[in-house]
């Protein structure tokens, strides 16, 4: 089953994503609480997919996408956005993110988006 890196500055959100994806058998191989940590953990863990919050300290999610794509142009990254962040989601997709999920999370949407993003990778 796919290994997932969860990047979000809110522990609340990391736990929620973890619970949703683990209930479907995915493995959360690591967590990151800012953009710099997300890039470092990506290098260290080589996850199959990254869920990336947009608004994070030190380095934004969009800049972290750019950093990860620079390391691995084929990396699979799904953005976690809130309503009203459409422009930022577009920017993230242009930077290399494959798709996005909207907060508040609906478990079925999270799973479907992750599965589709992984299929695109194949």
């Amino acid at each position: 089953m796919a290994r997932i890196l969860v990047a979000d500055d809110a522990s609340f959100m990391r736990q929620m994503i973890r619970e949703i994806v683990e209930s479907e058998g995915f493995e959360v191989c690591g967590e990151a609480s800012d953009g710099i940590e997300a890039i470092d953990e990506f290098k260290r863990l080589h996850p199959d997919i990254v869920t990336m919050d947009i608004v994070m300290p030190r380095k934004s999610g969009i800049d972290a996408v750019r950093g990860i794509i620079e390391i691995d142009p084929g990396a699979t990254i799904v953005m976690c956005s809130a309503l009203g962040q459409e422009a930022l989601v577009t920017e993230a997709m242009q930077a290399g993110a494959k798709d996005f999920i909207v907060k508040p999370f609906k478990p079925e949407c999270v799973i479907e988006t992750i599965q589709k993003a992984l299929e695109k990778e194949v």
Binding site: A10, F12, M13, V55, A82, P104
Partner: peptide, 15 residues
């Protein structure tokens, strides 16, 4: 910081 904290509270509260 205020921007990020407000954003974070919004996301949690909405959830």
């Amino acid at each position: 910081l205020i921007f990020r904290m407000a954003h974070s509270i919004k996301g949690m509260a909405a959830s």
